[in-house]
Design a protein around this nucleic acid. Structure first.
Lengths: 340, 340
DNA sequence: TTGTACGCGTTATCAC
DNA sequence: GTGATAACGCGTACAA
């Protein structure tokens, strides 16, 4: 069924066999027109016998479209980003697009250059990054549509996020309802979403007449969560609830706290953000907020394609988070000791 | 610093400005030759002022190389595959290649067609798949190098895997050393690696004069692990150790077993495969075997590039797994009841 | 060392 | 409805 030659059949081969011009073959392939029954039949047959497939590269060369988009994320091992990629992949398959994947974890520097390289190979980019605002503006010069996560980078840039401020508020009110008064935030200041969550938490606590303690983790990871226990729980003024920047931190924190003899949630309630799949399987199961990772990935891809098609003007979109109460938060027990 | 026109500068623009031919520019770009100091200087300057960047599409068109490889996996949410992608991404960045990512979870059918489409856009493919052998042979017709995971698909196909047989043997001997006699295997028969692990376990048990019980999960997931508890533990002849096909199954299983009042590891030891990051954070921490997911991803990419360069003849490569003993396995306690 | 001329496979444009 | 042909941007014989 396949031609003897190694060379893949071209539109010219089809034209010769079907006894038409290459232009006609092209129009047939792209279904742009009607044909006489005779030509249509000859075309169909020639294409079938030759096993002709149009070359996407050559097509891109002239149309300027690659039907490929880049998805650039910080660390695929973080289930939040895994969800984003999963969602973007699903929509990409639905809509006939390809995904160029880049995990930038090991390449903090030269990110702008890499994006510039990438942008020549794709029709648009989905980007999650910690790069400074000064670099962000450079991305507008790429002349390619970009969808960001977690922040409106202004003028002509579309962004998709979940409402971290209200998510933090949900957690705060949940903890306050449980009787907690000394609430700490274990943040990761380098993350794009940290200030939003910190701000939302702070606002809700202040509204209740409380003041949060702040701590900073070294990374948004399980290991960093473990490390943070010493600083957060072993001080003189131990908090009775800890809100962690994400579920990874929370899980690592909870685990190490228990290893150090602190009971969760009896002595300290712990929460995260994201609702990653494992949060249901920790011990105790983790109270968290679903930040809609997969939906963000889907939405980012859909909006990006709309930007590419020109049917959308860039703007900001925010998904609604959902509080997920599990066993790592509980009503505060009678205080075992009084603090100074 | 950038030309006024919207059009990106081409090799012809550079040639005109530098007062040389396009051929000279091309040779300069590709560093294929020495030049007189004068021309070199003019070229350098023209390229800099125009901000010229070579168009990868046009280059691919003529070289037949895209510097892009596809990585096709089953489910990015499974940390084993996450590790593979992570490793492949790392090496790809190192070596200046791009990764075209596809998660096939939602597209079980039409996989061969999709790979055929993909293969026209890339120089080679890294594939993890459950497709039947009959389809595998079709991939050889792609005329593109392919690296598979977990199985040598024969003739001209390179494969990378971790030794599941010996990994299962390690777990078996570990459990036997702990005094376990009734050992069950909770498999996932559709997976490529299932029979290898099952076989290795069986062989090691038989060598010790034992016979395993076999169970099958519906999926290689946390949820399927939960579901399997009823069948595995609630029968008349409860095993005192369960080896699960992967860590996800094991974690789900362990969690639900405990919820059902079965103590781990006191009443039943549980193990998995893969050593995913979370396995250290479950309660109890999971005994498992490190199947070198990231190293597999790295190796797959390196070997694929060697296949592309033609410096490698296809073959099989197997990584050595590493037993990771944690708290989910323990010495068998004195039997609480005797079995019929 | 450098230039000329052509080819890669496709689509767009203009005739007919 | 169909055909001839010029692009698209680059690499590379071959000639000079």
């Amino acid at each position: 069924m396949r031609s003897e030659s190694n060379r893949a059949p071209t539109i010219r081969d089809v034209a010769r066999v079907a006894n038409v011009s290459t232009a006609t073959v092209s129009r047939y392939i792209n279904g742009a027109q009607k044909f006489t029954a005779a030509t249509e039949e000859r075309l169909r047959e020639a294409i079938a016998t030759l096993g002709y497939k149009t070359d996407p590269l050559a097509r891109s060369m002239i149309t300027g479209r690659t039907r490929t988009v880049a998805v650039v994320i910080l660390d695929i091992r973080n289930p939040h980003f895994t969800g984003i990629v999963k969602g973007a992949n699903r929509k990409a398959l639905d809509l006939g697009y390809n995904l160029l994947f880049v995990d930038t974890a090991e390449r903090q520097s030269g990110e702008v250059g890499m994006l510039r390289e990438l942008s020549r190979r794709v029709d648009g980019l989905i980007v999650s990054s910690r790069m400074p605002d000064s670099d962000l503006s450079a991305l507008r010069d790429l002349q390619k549509p970009v969808v960001f996560f977690g922040r409106a980078a202004g003028e002509g840039v579309h962004s998709v996020s979940a409402d971290g401020r209200s998510a933090a508020g949900m957690l705060a009110r949940h903890l306050i309802d449980l009787g907690h008064r000394k609430i700490a935030y274990l943040g990761y200041p380098l993350a794009r979403w940290d200030s939003e969550r910190k701000g939302g938490l702070t606002a809700a606590l202040i509204e209740a007449g409380l003041t949060p303690q702040y701590f900073a983790a070294e990374a948004p990871t399980l290991e960093a969560g473990e490390k943070a226990v010493g600083e957060v729980l072993m001080g003189s003024d131990r908090p009775d609830a800890v809100v962690c920047f994400n579920d990874l931190l929370a899980i690592g924190f909870m685990n190490q706290a228990q290893a150090a003899g602190v009971r969760v949630p009896e002595q300290v309630s712990v929460t995260g953000f994201d609702d990653i799949p494992f949060s249901r399987f920790t011990s105790p199961a983790l109270t968290t907020v679903d930040m809609q990772s997969e939906a963000m990935g889907e939405l980012a891809l859909v909006r990006l394609l709309e930007l590419i098609e020109g049917t959308l003007v860039a703007s900001e979109e925010t998904l609604r988070p959902r509080l997920v109460v599990r066993a790592s938060t509980a009503r505060k027990a009678a205080p075992l000791k009084s603090d100074v």
